[in-house]
Amino acid sequence: MIVRAAPHAIRGTLAVGERVRPCVLGRGGIVADKREGDGGTPVGRFPLRRLLYRPDRESAIATGLPILPLSEHLGWCDDPGDPVHYNRLVRLPFDSRHERMWRDDGLYDLVIELGYNDAPPVPGRGSAIFLHLARPDGRPTEGCVALARDDMLAVLVAVGSESMIDISYA
């Protein structure tokens, strides 16, 4: 899987095999030196860890990735001051800063966890970098890569546990 965009662009392309799809990037575009809160999508090559999904909204998902159904009790720690849980899935309630994975806006109805800054996580280097569903109005993400739902479903069929995402400048 290949993501390409011009420097500072919030829109790019995601290619899997011969098929190229439009994607949305972070408000900071693709960045070489990712930092927590900068809005940048990190440059690099990262494994696809697993698919997380809302079982009340999605079912029978075809993919070769490991799958984890979300619940209202799951969050993602984005607090660099918590080195034990930083850039990790956590159970709610949770005392450190985090985002909820069970979102009302639908962006995380289908979300692929990318293996960015996770082996091990370095506090402050960025967290919660996912491939998720795009907003209907096409607004940029906080640093993730986002696709339209139909494009995400097509990508899910084409990827597996050995798949990687390569994010770089066009």
Rank of each mutant, 00 (worst) to 15 (best):
S163E: 06
L156H: 00
Y86H: 07
G126R: 01
S71D: 06
P80I: 13
S71C: 11
D137Q: 09
G124M: 14
K34S: 04
E142A: 13
D78N: 08
G39L: 07
A148D: 12
A154Y: 01
F130Y: 14
G81Q: 15
R19D: 01
L89M: 15
D82T: 14
L52F: 12
V84T: 12
V155P: 05
D118N: 04
I30Q: 00
Y86V: 07
Y108F: 12
D79Q: 08
R91C: 13
V155D: 00
L153M: 15
G160C: 03
H98F: 10
Y108N: 01
G64N: 02
P47Q: 05
R11S: 11
H73A: 15
V155K: 08
L110T: 09
A128C: 12
I30G: 03
P66S: 07
A32H: 10
E142T: 11
I165L: 11
G26A: 12
S163V: 05
I30C: 05
H98T: 08
E142N: 12
D137T: 00
R149A: 11
R91V: 12
P22W: 13
F94G: 04
H98R: 13
R88S: 15
V24P: 01
F130E: 13
P93G: 04
A32M: 14
V20L: 15
R27L: 13
P123H: 09
L51N: 01
P80V: 06
G75C: 07
D150P: 15
S168V: 07
G39Y: 06
E99A: 00
I67R: 12
M1I: 09
V159E: 03
H85M: 13
N117H: 07
L68A: 15
V20F: 01
I129C: 05
G37P: 07
V145M: 01
V84A: 13
V111P: 02
D78Q: 04
S71M: 03
Y53A: 05
R50A: 14
V24S: 14
P123D: 10
A158C: 05
W76D: 00
L107A: 15
S96N: 14
E18I: 01
F130A: 04
P42I: 02
P136H: 13
H132Q: 04
V145H: 02
P83G: 04
T13S: 14
L52M: 12
V43P: 15
A158P: 00
D109W: 09
T41Q: 08
R100M: 10
D109E: 05
C23H: 01
G37V: 04
G81A: 10
S168N: 10
A170S: 11
L133F: 07
M164P: 02
W102F: 07
I112G: 10
G143D: 04
A62E: 14
A15L: 06
K34V: 10
G64Q: 07
C77Y: 05
G44H: 00
L133D: 11
V31W: 02
I61P: 06
L110K: 00
E113P: 00
L52N: 02
